[in-house]
């Protein structure tokens, strides 16, 4: 039986899906960890990015943050954080992944608020809007495409990176692959391949769903911007 066939057999065995620690359990863990990491990333990065964009300061800081996180190996954070005060379990993994969600969210929030046409901003000020009103009623609505693009980049990256949680036995779909490598290619080649297919499918599915969502929340007149944002959003971090 070749490896593709045994992967197929693995995926077709209902017990592999429903057993404790089976595919469904792992998928649940994967989604919980990813969602928590993205949520923390949003809570930390969005206010800072929006505020920096609004005040027009700190562009250098954002470049520094994304350069730094690009150089830090995910595996390193995943192994170091459990040994700190965060202790073992899900929290250190979620925090480690949140760190890699921050740069795309931060830079897109900053760029999104920053790119608002200065004339629009002046017009709003001339109409008597205060700083907070300007932010809430002019800058934020115009920044929506960028915010959505940043969210999508961050979420897809976190879902991809969550697979690495398996290196420290942290759960998620990557666990299936890691367990397979533990058993060896000869015994579990099919399981490894099946795990790879599942992880890749999840990442591509999330990418597709969020691309759709991004399109839905972007008002039609701002849509041509979207493609440009895609290209300008520098993919950060190693997934």
């Amino acid at each position: 039986m070749n490896i593709v066939e045994s992967a197929w057999v693995y995926l077709n065995d209902p017990l592999n899906w429903t057993n404790p620690g089976g595919i469904l359990d792992r998928l649940g863990e994967h989604l919980v960890i990813s969602a928590a990491a993205v949520a923390i990333g949003c809570v930390v990065a969005l206010p800072i990015g929006i505020w920096l964009g609004h005040s027009g300061r700190g562009g250098g800081l954002i470049v520094l943050v994304s350069d730094l996180t690009l150089a830090i190996p995910t595996v390193a954070l995943l192994t170091i954080l459990p040994l700190t005060f965060l202790s073992f379990g899900k929290p250190p993994i979620i925090v480690a992944l949140a760190v890699f969600a921050i740069p795309p969210l931060l830079s897109n929030a900053y760029t999104g608020v920053r790119q608002v046409d200065p004339e629009t901003r002046d017009a709003a000020k001339g109409m008597g809007l205060s700083g907070a009103q300007l932010l809430r009623r002019v800058e934020l609505p115009l920044a929506v495409p960028y915010l959505a693009a940043g969210f999508r980049t961050a979420a897809v990256q976190v879902v991809a990176t969550t697979a690495l949680a398996s290196y420290v036995n942290g759960g998620g779909l990557g666990q299936i692959i890691a367990a397979g490598f533990g058993l060896g290619i000869a015994a579990a080649g099919g399981q490894i391949l099946a795990g790879g297919v599942l992880v890749a499918a999840l990442a591509l599915a999330v990418e597709g769903i969020l691309a759709l969502l991004e399109r839905l929340v972007t008002p039609a007149p701002l849509r041509p911007l979207r493609r440009k944002t895609d290209r300008e959003t520098i993919a950060t971090g190693a997934a």
Partner: peptide, 9 residues
């Protein structure tokens, strides 16, 4: 977009 671990697998 394909996660690195999946590529390795």
């Amino acid at each position: 977009t394909i996660p690195s671990l999946a590529l390795l697998a």
